[in-house]
Each structure stands twice: as C-alpha cells, then as structure tokens.
Design a binder for these strands. Structure first.
Length: 307
DNA sequence: AAGACGAAAGTGGTTGA
DNA sequence: TCAACAACTTTCGTCTT
C-alpha cells in the first residue's frame, strides 16, 4: 500500500495538495514537494469533465498559490538572492494571512465539530486510530476545497471514513457506516464518490477477502471455515467470477459454501444479514461458485460422511 | 414451520451514443 | 443528456426438509 504523508516535514502544515498533473504532493503553505510518484490512477478513478470540476481542479486559489510558490522557489539563478529573500517574506506573509483568515472563519469550527463526529463514529465501529486519522485528513482536504458546501457535514464525515477504511483495506459496508452515522446509505455512497473524485484519491476496488474475517467471526464460524472461504474466494477470483460483482456478496457466498463444507451450516438469511446483502444475491453467487469450481464433490463427500 | 429456490419487477449507478 | 445495461434488491409463490 502506498504511504500517505499527513504533515509537511518542512512547516508542519497539514495543508497538502495532491497535484494530479505531475504526480506530486505539494505543501500548500510552504511549497515543498513532498512526494513524487504518489499518483496511480486506479480502476475506480475517472475523469468526469464538467464545469464544476474544471473550475476547482485547474484554477482554484490553492493551486495558484502552489504554482506561484514553486515558480519562485526554482527561479533562483535568474533574479539572485534579493529576490529570493523577498519571496520568502512573501511566503511568510501569505502563511500568516491565511492562518489569520482561517481562525476567523467557519472552517476551524466546522472541523472541530466534524472531528468530534468522526471520533464518535469510529469508536462506534471500533476502527483503529490510523483509519480515523486518515479520515480526518481526507475530511480536512475536503473542507479546504469547499466540497462540504451543499452537503451535510455528517455525510462528508461518513464518506471520508468510508474512503479511509477502504484505503486501509479494512472495508466496512455502506450499511454499517450508515447505521453508525445515521446517514442514508446512498448519501454516503454519493459523497464518497464525490470527494474521492474531487480529491483524486486512489481507492482500489475492495477485495472480498478483506470481509471474510469480520463476517466469519460475527457468524461464529471456525478458523478452518474461514480459511476455506478464503481458499474458495481465491479460486473464484482465478475463475474471474469476482469482477463487477459486489465484493460483500461474493465474500458471503464463499463463507456460506465454506460453512456447508465444514458442517457448520448457517442459513442464507443469517449470512445475508451479517454481510448486508440479500439471500438472493448469496444464492446467485453460490450458484456461480458451484458451477465454476467443482465444489459439488466436496459437498457431497461431506454429506456422505454425515450420513 | 422454516429454509431454500427462482421468477419477476423495481432501483440506482455506469456507460456509450 | 438519455437510453440501454448489469448488479442487486424486494416480493412472492413453490418446493424441500
């Protein structure tokens, strides 16, 4: 997994900008280029060109500042030391002015509220601190880009958290986020898509395997069943049964089959409820699994042993 | 009576003209 | 921008255990 920098090592600002065109992360406050090659246009990333996007992405104030700083910083030879000093002073001026502006503005208060809400939801879902931090970072970026406007603060928090979970490969379902935050599932999905798009955050399609341990323990299934489910899942991925399908559906179907094989049968409804899908989806995936991988044999064998 | 199964109709999101 | 489309859900009737 890519590592993500949270603070500028130069000035300590968390005001970092992902510069998509060049694949750099740039500190908005001091212009330091922190990471090159951070960009990897993952599968879910798409460029949707409408006016709003263009405005924010290309010509917003933050970007201009960044470019300005960078331009001066690299322009040493031409203008000499005097100019460089002046540029530093201007930098400082900008920083101060922005800071001042920021405390006087609603952003700071908004952040406080949002981070409190975030804390509440993460602890409800028992998510690790690293995820909370990541979500906070995403949220902060979203606020600074004015992405919260027109959306409820809570829904953006939920969206940021969902993104953070996916990034840390400990995905929660939208239903769980919805339950914890009290925001409509669709709304979370929408804001999630919106902010990841706007911020250019790369999210891998979540891997069904990541769901297995949690579902399995919620269903009180044995470790053997769990690893059996993972095994089935891997076969399914090889057979290309997984692409385009909802990951939680596939995960739950594998678990269901694994439980059958290991004589730990759970009803489709039980599995479905835990996984946040319907029985029908489990059945469909289950059918595909049986057809593509010849699991019939194993199941029959078990049935014989039982009789 | 409960669970499994499948058909049919509906929903929300993606895609390509 | 809109229609076709795939995945998934909801609902419901039927079969099996």
């Amino acid at each position: 997994m890519t590592t993500y920098i949270k603070k500028c090592p130069e000035c300590g600002s968390i005001n970092l900008i992902l510069h998509k065109d060049r694949g750099e992360v740039v500190c908005k406050d001091c212009g330091l280029v922190i990471e090159e090659k951070i960009i990897d246009f993952g599968q879910e990333w798409r460029e949707f060109e409408d006016d709003k996007d263009n405005k924010k992405r290309r010509t917003g104030a933050p970007m201009t500042y960044t470019k300005f700083d960078r331009g001066l910083g690299t322009d040493v030879g031409k203008k000499g030391d005097v100019y460089q000093l002046r540029s530093k002073e201007r930098n400082k001026y900008f920083r101060l002015r922005k800071w001042q502006h920021r405390v006087s503005t609603a952003i700071e208060r908004n952040l406080k509220l949002a981070l409190a809400e975030l804390k509440r939801v993460t602890s409800y879902l028992k998510l690790p601190n690293s995820v909370e931090e990541e979500a906070a970072r995403i949220y902060t970026m979203a606020v600074q880009r004015g992405l919260v406007r027109g959306r409820s603060m809570e829904s953006v928090v939920a969206g940021a958290l969902y993104a953070a979970c996916r990034r840390y490969e400990i995905p929660r379902t939208l239903d769980e986020l919805s339950e914890a935050s009290g925001i409509d599932k669709k709304e979370i999905g929408r804001t999630y898509r919106f902010i990841t798009r706007e911020l250019g955050i790369r999210i891998l399609p979540s891997n069904p395997v990541d769901f297995i341990p949690r579902f399995a323990s919620a269903l009180k299934l044995s470790a053997e069943t769990q690893s059996k489910a993972v095994e089935i899942l891997e076969k399914a991925q090889k057979a290309e049964l997984t692409s385009g399908r909802g990951p939680s559906g596939i995960a739950s179907a594998s678990l269901y089959v694994a439980a059958l094989i290991n004589n730990e049968k759970r009803t489709q409804r039980e599995v479905a409820d835990i996984a946040g899908v319907t029985e029908v989806t489990i059945r469909n995936r289950y059918k595909e699994l049986l057809k593509e991988l010849d699991l019939d044999k194993e199941i029959k064998k078990k049935l014989l042993e039982a009789s």
